[in-house]
């Protein structure tokens, strides 16, 4: 089927029709798209490059939004932070890091969760017990604690000169490893339902091995709830990234993510420089809320059982 035909079929589908008739879904989808586009094209949209120390003018520090700076006369849409960094630019670049960490962490959690869930559900027995009891144990800890633990271990293992370069990777691994359990549980449940169906017996009859049956037959049939969890986990991952960065164990101050920006802003909240905290926080709120609302709608649409 050509791409065009597929798009035409999608535009005619019930799924697309329901989407256009759900205002919340449309609005949240537009918000997500705007934020993602801004982040991807940050280099073109942002007036300055906040990661380039040479472009910073310390004299611009603490310039309020939309007011010319008393010394330089520069105007900043969302004001400037303590180092004279344009906050609007910093948010756009920060979004990039937040979104990248979020997407990669979800992919990691998803791959891991699907792999373990599929194996546990299909093979069953002691392997199922082992995987799922491990998941149970992990679920007794708040995921942010797990992420901090992994982060701490990584810092202990990595040589000091790599710590800075690897900080984003460590963040992704930490968040990814702390969020695989919901994927695994859902996939395991669907797998156990699917493996009793007769098409699986038919595949066994022609001598396919476990792995072939799991990947070729069962996997495609357990993916739609995974999509829903992925959206919701994506929102969680962005918040987790912000939290970790806020706690100072995430993205470095020189390449601030949304969370780092919020942490910086928090230092100045009580001295009256409210904008440094408010704008990054609002962006995070808008993003997380939009992703969650969209995920909720998707869940109702794809999996009526979960309602």
């Amino acid at each position: 089927m050509s791409g065009n035909a597929m798009i035409r079929r999608f535009l005619k589908s019930d799924f697309f029709y329901d989407f256009t008739h759900a205002p919340i879904a449309v609005v949240s989808f537009v918000v997500i798209m705007v934020i993602v586009t801004c982040a991807i094209f940050a280099g073109f949209i942002a007036p300055t490059n906040p990661f380039d120390p040479s472009s910073l003018e310390l004299m611009n520090g603490f310039t309020p939004p939309m007011q010319p700076n008393a010394f330089t006369g520069d105007v900043f849409l969302m004001g400037a932070d303590d180092q004279g960094r344009d906050l609007f630019s910093a948010i756009l670049y920060g979004l990039r890091i937040s979104l990248f960490v979020g997407v990669m962490a979800v992919i990691l959690a998803m791959v891991l969760g699907i792999l373990l869930g599929l194996t546990a559900g299909y093979v069953g027995g002691w392997l199922d017990n082992l995987i799922m009891r491990f998941a149970d144990i992990q679920m007794t800890f708040p995921s942010i604690l797990i992420a901090m633990l992994i982060h701490g271990v990584a810092r202990g293992i990595l040589p000091p000169e790599l710590r800075y370069e690897m900080s984003i990777t460590v963040l992704i691994v930490a968040i990814g490893l702390s969020e695989w359990v919901p994927f695994a549980r859902t996939v395991r449940g669907s797998t156990m339902v699917e493996k009793e169906k007769e098409y699986v017996a038919a595949a066994q009859l022609i001598g396919l091995n476990r792995w072939q049956i799991m990947v070729r037959h069962i996997l495609p049939n357990v993916l739609s709830p995974v999509l829903v969890i992925a959206t919701i986990t994506f929102a969680l991952a962005i918040i987790a990234e912000a939290t970790l960065s806020f706690l100072g164990v995430g993205a470095p101050r020189t390449e601030p993510s949304l969370g780092t920006l919020i942490r910086i802003g928090q230092d100045f909240l009580f001295s009256g420089e409210w904008w440094i905290l408010l704008f990054p926080a609002l962006t995070l709120l808008a993003l997380a809320l939009a992703v969650n609302l969209f995920g909720d709608w998707l869940r109702d649409k794809l999996n009526p059982r979960l309602k």
Partner: peptide, 28 residues
Amino acid sequence: RRRIQMVFQSPYASLNPRWAVGDILKEP
């Protein structure tokens, strides 16, 4: 295995819903 095959009870559960009919028949 090739010489003994089976037709199942449920017309709904016995065919993988994500596979085109041609692929279902080609698999064996």
